[in-house]
């Protein structure tokens, strides 16, 4: 059974069809990419998966359970974490506090535990800190934990976001354009990191990306959508050779250049 199964997913805004009858499957422990020209509806797919948008029709099964009418926090609790295309860090809080947010759904202390600082609460706090530090270590910025998030350089802010998502201890990680705004060196480290997330942590990865070099290097399988419709799927080679992909992609790119 696939870890994630999208069946005939459709999302409409008024008359506009952002996602149109999309079906795809993601197997456990794989790395999959979703690509397509700008405005093809990629982020909309993620937003449906994580409960931020309500699909007009279709179904999404995560570990065999439907995600329809499920609130975002329940979905995260169920083991799916995401990052955002435009960084969405808690800017006024420290890097450490940012990453600690991921542990919220794995812990339970409430008002009285906090006020009386019970034994259980203290142990839990220690565990939250340990996990957060470990995640920061994993993404390679253990020394930045006391910075205010907004004071970090862009590349490091991205890493904080990955660490934060990892701290939720997901089974499936959705990365929305993780390489956007990164330089060459940072991209190389990202490729390495994605592989390590899958190999060391056994987390399945589903990513949206514009950087074709990166996508080609790491994904085992690629889905291509355009105007919300899936136009191709398959290995890197298969997709590269698919005339529809070339047409949709390069055609669009030319228009962009013209603007």
């Amino acid at each position: 059974m696939a870890l994630l199964e999208i069946k005939d997913l459709t999302l409409r805004f008024g008359g506009l069809c952002a996602v149109n009858g999309l079906s795809l499957e993601i197997e456990e422990n794989s790395i999959r990419s979703l690509i397509g020209p700008n405005g093809a509806g990629k982020t909309c797919v993620f937003n449906c998966l994580t409960g931020f948008y309500k699909p007009s029709s279709g179904d999404m099964l995560f570990q065999g359970k439907s995600l329809l009418n499920t609130k975002p926090h329940i979905i995260t609790y169920g083991g799916m974490a995401r990052t955002f295309q435009n960084l969405r860090l808690f800017k006024q809080l420290s890097v450490m506090e940012n990453v600690m947010s991921g542990m919220h759904c794995r812990t339970s202390a409430g008002f009285s535990a906090a006020v009386f600082r019970t034994k259980g609460q203290q142990a839990e706090e220690r565990r939250i800190r340990e996990v957060a530090e470990e995640c920061l270590d994993f993404v390679g910025i253990p020394d930045k934990k006391h910075y205010m998030a907004k004071n970090l350089p862009y590349g490091d802010q991205r890493r904080v976001e990955w660490a934060r998502a990892l701290a939720t201890q997901p089974k499936l990680l959705l990365l929305d354009e993780p390489a956007a705004g990164l330089n060459k060196e940072e991209k190389a480290r990202l490729i390495d990191l994605i592989a390590r997330i899958r190999d060391e942590r056994k987390i399945t990865i589903f990513l949206i990306e514009h950087d074709m070099g990166l996508v080609m290097k790491i994904s085992e399988k690629i889905f291509v959508i355009d105007y919300g419709i899936k136009i191709a799927e398959g290995s890197v080679k298969e997709v590269q050779d698919n005339p529809r992909v070339v047409e949709a992609y390069l055609g669009k790119e030319e228009q962009e250049d013209a603007v």
Binding site: T76, E97, R106
Partner: peptide, 19 residues
């Protein structure tokens, strides 16, 4: 901390599993 996450960014807080 959960309150502060929500104050800073509601959607990101929800994505981190906070009700």
């Amino acid at each position: 901390r959960a309150w502060q996450y929500i104050r800073e960014d509601e959607d990101a807080a929800a994505a981190m599993g906070i009700n």
